[in-house]
Amino acid sequence: MKPSSPLGARFRTAVLTLSLAVVATLGSVSRADVPVREEPQRPSAFGATEDAPLPTVAPGDLQGLLRNCDAERERAVAAQKLCEQDKTGVDFLGAAYAALWIILMAFFALVAIRQRRLSAELATLRERLARLGER
């Protein structure tokens, strides 16, 4: 029987591992309870929380005063809602930036380990070269 090449065996192992990872992911998702979501936000623009100044009201314009009063109340409600959102939002913001730096640090650690391994291989190579020269 013809022995399989090392690449063939490794390739099959890699493909099998990846396939299992994909199947496991899809399997876990199909079993998971899909949470009931609120109406999704799909903004087409990101704006700042700067409020435009309210229109000036002429003395005796009661309707104008009421309109400004309503506008101020709406702004206060929106600001309150945003503050509520920020209570959890700030934690997720911190987690996202922490994750970003952890991933980058892990990558640099991996590169440093590989670099050290290469340097060790270089030392071995030099040693073998020296021995070859002595003969």
């Binding site: 936000q41 903004p43 990101f46 704006g47 700042a48 929380t49 700067e50 929106a78 945003l82 503050c83 959102q85 920020d86 939002g89 700030v90 997720f92 913001l93 996202a96 930036y97 970003l100």
Partner: peptide, 20 residues
């Protein structure tokens, strides 16, 4: 960058998320 008016502070993830 100012705080976003509908999402609040968490929108600041956008800058590095989209750049990445």
């Amino acid at each position: 960058a100012p705080r976003e008016r509908t999402m609040g502070e968490v929108q600041r993830i956008f800058y590095f998320h989209v750049a990445s």
